[in-house]
C-alpha cells in the first residue's frame, strides 16, 4: 500500500469505505478530500481521535437533519468535518472558504465547456 498515513486513517477512523487494500472512492473529489485530510494530519493539525470525533459529530448532525444514512453520503460528512476543523484550527475562516468557493463558481461561468478551469484574481471581485 502506497501511503502509511492512509492505512493509519483507515484503522483509526470508523466507517471509511474500503476493500482489502484500503480506502475506495466513488468519485474523484472524495479522494481529493481524503488526500487533504491526510496532508493536514501529517502537518500535525489534528490527531485521528480528534478527526474521528469531528466526523462523528457531523454525521450525527446530518442524520438529525434527515440524512438517509446509507453510506453514500459518508464523504459529504467528511468534507463538512474538514471545513469545520480547518476553521476551528484557525487555518482559514468560513468566510475565506466561502469567498473562494464563489470565486471558483465565477471561474466556471466564464470558462467555456471543455477548457481547463483556472482561478484568477479577478474571480474574487464579482
Amino acid at each position: 500500500m502506497p501511503n502509511a498515513t492512509a492505512m493509519q486513517a483507515a484503522k483509526a477512523v470508523p466507517g471509511i469505505p474500503q476493500d482489502e487494500d484500503g480506502p475506495v472512492f466513488n468519485e474523484p473529489w472524495q479522494a481529493q478530500a481524503f488526500a487533504m485530510t491526510l496532508a493536514l494530519y501529517d502537518r500535525g493539525l489534528f490527531t485521528w481521535g480528534e478527526w474521528a470525533a469531528t466526523l462523528a459529530d457531523e454525521i450525527k448532525r446530518a442524520q438529525a437533519a434527515g440524512d438517509p444514512d446509507t453510506g453514500e453520503t459518508y464523504y459529504s460528512h467528511w468534507l463538512a468535518a474538514l471545513e469545520r476543523l480547518v476553521a476551528e484550527k484557525g487555518v482559514a475562516t468560513r468566510e475565506t472558504l466561502h469567498r473562494t468557493r464563489d470565486a471558483w463558481d465565477h471561474a466556471c461561468d466564464r470558462t467555456p465547456h471543455g477548457q481547463p478551469i483556472e482561478l484568477r484574481a479577478s474571480d474574487f471581485h464579482e
Binding site: A39, E83, V91, H98, T100, R101, C108, P112, H113, L119
Partner: peptide, 28 residues
Amino acid sequence: HHDHEHSELSETQLRVRALETVLTEKGY
C-alpha cells in the same frame, strides 16, 4: 463550442476546490 455553454462544477466540487486553493495558498 456553443457560446452559451460554460463549465460547471457541482456544489461539492466547488467546496473541495476552495479548500485546496486556500490550504495551498497558506502552505498547508
